[in-house]
Design a binder for these strands. Structure first.
Lengths: 310, 310
DNA sequence: GGGCCATGTGAAGAAACCTCACAGAAGGCC
DNA sequence: GGCCTTCTGTGAGGTTTCTTCACATGGCCC
């Protein structure tokens, strides 16, 4: 009586997962159900709330603004619940703990993990998603994956292994892009989408065009995570500087377009191991990362970029 | 795959409600189910987590420390979810919005609301739970209920109507109390439980015993809400200064005891209405509050307290 | 001991949820 | 255009989960 009746929590969770992944199929994988189940849950939620949460053709569904707002508000709440629930006692050998940006985990690492597990079936891996700083000892982290630009002030002792170059470029929904031909000037004045995780994205990207001072955009919106920035771009809210590694699939499926292609960013994706020696497993994982990084395809236009290369 | 499998969200919600109310029956009322359903959910949760969340005889169940920790972590997460879900468009007349401390709502106001609704069936009431400051206009609040001690610095323009005196005293679980006869001195040195909502509780209470300087306690623990402080006392974690109005039922059922009785506190429970004139409905509600306040029984020992009376 | 109150529980029924299989819609490619 | 791929929508039916009802149990108070 005290609290208003909430819609089904399972439906909210399904929508939150959809919000992060941008695709029902991936959300369904995460939740270990079929895509049909997610589809039903989301539709039921939309009916109960009387608000459209998704829009667009099935093959490139995107969130509405209301949906983006809801998903963004739900994510931290579910994170909190997850953190609150005591972990069951782990069985078997201590897993290799890899700390990683949430979006990098979702969009790059986790899809490739089966390859590592096939090669080393005896090394269980636990991915700990985290944006912020970490402590190898206190958090039990064996290896961390971070983005590091040359400007990053290093405040910790650690060994750093770059394993992938960072290509990025302006991304937006096809509907936004077809309105008129995209030029550098026009993109710079459109509503700009940022992520708290990498606020320097725009200025970093602008260097490649010798634009030291970006013209002011029509508006700016900051998201807590890369994935919500990407979904906002898909929803047509503006232009974001998206890393190639994160948007590859969305470009292939046509949910997003990148009319100016991708250029080589100053940041790199690095693996970080503790200064006092990494475990044997962490080194194997690092080697696997180097290998996977090398075999991740380059963006098609990257060769036009004189600064690129690896 | 990315995220660990959580226990049933409904089970977590049932436990969270139990945590706030301290009784399965009340949690069941809030969730509009039978007590049996809540009982099963909590048992299932305990089995899945492999942790005891409740303990003690059925007639005065209490949370374990693990349970208290879990419930406290879950509450803000569910609050966040509730806040995130867009409200369905309200039907009918605009309800009278009453802003109120969460614990006061749960333990005093909501159980009495049916009486108001019986008297004024045409005035729908919405209880907005909030600890902090509020804005009559921005939050659409018609009337607020707060605790106000004489020291409170008034920073807002408003009309204030005290409607209930505040009696409080040290409360603890019967197990803690029977260990030895309770004296003022002993109570002051036991582990002390506080609530962020009313940190001055202990010093306020101590004035009645001319104890200007409380001896330091064995330890101190601060809870975000009165109800978790009360549940911690029931769990045997220490002694809290509990308001009579909030613990009346727990004393009657034997979940808590108050060996030193209750004394008249300096704070009062007040209704606050906007400075520019309250609505007709808000005034009716204020009158009803005055009436309910007067008919709330006094603590049995209050008459021994020379400062009491109203 | 009898009454009261709150929780535990067995069995049955209701509701929610999921899967399977197929359909539809859009885009890419030849 | 025709075919293929990818992704979501949906009807039917099955499975799991959740609830209820009614009664049992246990502790407390008088």
């Amino acid at each position: 009586m005290a609290r208003r009746q909430l819609p089904s929590l399972n439906a909210l969770r399904a929508f939150e997962a959809f919000g992060r992944h941008g695709r029902m199929t991936l959300a369904a994988d995460e939740l270990c159900v079929t895509h049909g189940a997610v589809s039903r849950q989301i539709r039921q939620l939309e009916e109960q709330l009387g608000v459209a949460l998704t829009e667009g053709p099935r093959s490139r569904l995107r969130m509405t603004e209301a949906g983006l707002k809801l998903a963004q508000a739900l994510s931290p709440a579910f994170d909190q619940i997850e953190a609150a629930v005591p972990q069951p006692v782990p069985v078997g050998p201590r897993p290799l703990v890899v700390s990683c940006l949430p979006t990098f985990a979702m969009k790059w690492l986790i899809p490739r993990l089966p390859s590592f597990q096939a090669a080393y079936p005896d090394i269980p891996v636990r991915v700990a998603e985290s944006n912020g700083p970490f402590d190898f000892k206190a958090d039990g982290v064996d290896l961390a994956i971070r983005m590091r630009s040359p400007d990053t002030v290093v405040t910790y002792e650690a060994e750093v292994w770059p394993f992938m170059e960072h290509y990025h470029g302006p991304i937006m929904s096809p509907e936004v892009a077809v309105a008129q031909p995209m030029s550098l000037e026009r993109i710079c004045t459109m509503p700009r989408l940022l992520t708290r995780t990498f606020l320097e994205g725009w200025s970093d990207w602008a260097r490649n065009f010798e634009l030291d001072h970006l013209p002011p955009p029509a508006s700016e919106q900051v998201f807590d995570h890369y994935f919500y920035m990407i979904e906002a771009a898909a929803a047509g809210l503006g232009v974001a500087i998206g890393p190639w590694a994160f948007v590859q699939r969305d470009l292939a499926s046509g949910r997003l377009v990148a009319p100016l292609g991708f250029t080589h960013g100053r940041a790199r994706i690095v693996a970080v191991t503790p200064p006092d020696g990494a475990t044997k497993e962490a080194l194997l994982f690092r080697d696997w990362l180097l290998e996977q990084g090398a075999s991740t395809p380059l963006p098609p236009e990257a060769s036009c970029d004189s600064r690129g290369g690896r």
